[in-house]
Design a protein around this nucleic acid. Structure first.
Length: 314
DNA sequence: CAGGTC
DNA sequence: CCTGG
């Protein structure tokens, strides 16, 4: 049960647009409803859920199943029809950022042939609006590892401390920081966090020690939020930039992971090619991204990342 | 080795 | 560095 003050604003009346219509099409225990996407609401659901920005989505045939905010949600897309169950339209629209004028945004970041190729590759890919704490712990789990391993850790954490999800009791919600308050380092090791276990434990303690931490982080400006994130153990510049982009809505955040580094080195910054990515080199790459792509550089980052096979091959 | 961090 | 894919 969540306190009323934690209710995000997406549920406010008036968030629906005239362009959408929905209808009940299934008489089971779960009802599947449909959002009719307008021409001005491009969406590539597969790219959005599969690109590695969130870790609790699984493709089951043509359908995606995931857990967000304690609810088991299923999504599928056929052209301009977006089918959903386990949630309501305002939430789905908010989570998928369907209110964002993507065409206008993509036009704004489309500044050279490289990014243009990336945009052509997966137009309709959107940056999700993820719950903060889950996103934070997920990227703390994501250092020096691969995506399947991160998924496995996140699932394990939910399996131990998460409450049964609404819509499917066999699935677990991702726990709040409070629910993890008494989790020990060994508990996190048992979730296969390895050397990240003490970081996770300390980060949870730090967050729990200040009940207003999460709320303030959402209210504070980009640079201040970044500094507060990086003050947590296990959260460096890369993880912080991912959290800023995926959970805090700072669309100018530009995380530098190994793939973005390769792409920048190959097409923009030859000097970035070799050696360790020191903090100052990280900053140089990051500010290059923000300067080149502007206020929505984070979208450019996601599109470049999703086109990494295209942009890194010789 | 893998979408870094201390 | 932990450790799984």
């Amino acid at each position: 049960m969540r306190p009323a003050c934690a209710e995000p604003s997406y549920s406010s009346a008036g968030s629906r647009t005239r362009c959408s219509s929905s209808c009940v099409s299934n008489g089971g225990t779960r009802t599947t409803e449909t959002i009719r996407l307008a021409e001005s609401e491009p969406l590539d659901l597969d790219a959005t859920l599969g690109c590695g920005q969130a870790f609790r989505w699984r493709r089951d045939g043509g359908r995606w199943e995931g857990v967000v905010d304690g609810r088991c949600i299923r999504l599928s897309q056929r052209g301009g029809l977006l089918h959903y169950s386990g949630s309501d339209e305002p939430f789905v629209r908010h989570y998928l950022a369907l209110d964002l004028d993507l065409d206008r945004l993509l036009a704004a970041i489309d500044r050279d042939p490289v990014i243009e190729a990336a945009i052509d590759r997966s137009r309709g890919l959107r940056v999700l609006r993820q719950p903060l704490f889950e996103c934070l712990l997920s990227f703390l789990c994501a250092t020096n590892t691969n995506i399947p391993a991160v998924q496995s850790r996140v699932e394990a954490i939910a399996g131990v401390w998460g409450e049964p999800a609404v819509g499917d009791e066999n699935v677990r919600a991702f726990p709040s920081s409070t629910a993890l308050r008494h989790a020990t380092e060994d508990d996190f090791r048992a979730c296969r966090l390895g050397y990240r276990a003490p970081y996770a434990r300390s980060a949870v303690t730090a967050i729990c020690s200040d009940p207003s931490w999460e709320g303030e982080l959402s209210a504070v400006p980009h640079d201040e939020a970044r500094a507060r994130l990086m003050a947590l153990p296990g959260i460096g510049p890369k993880a912080a930039d991912c959290i800023l982009l995926y959970a805090l809505g700072h669309l100018d955040a530009f995380p530098i992971d190994v793939w973005i580094r390769r792409i920048l080195a190959r097409h923009y910054l030859p000097d970035l090619d070799t050696g360790t990515l020191s903090p100052s080199r990280y900053e140089a790459a990051r500010s290059f991204g923000r300067d080149r792509f502007g206020a929505h550089a984070g979208y450019a980052q996601v599109y470049l990342f999703n086109a990494r096979d295209l942009l890194c091959r010789d």
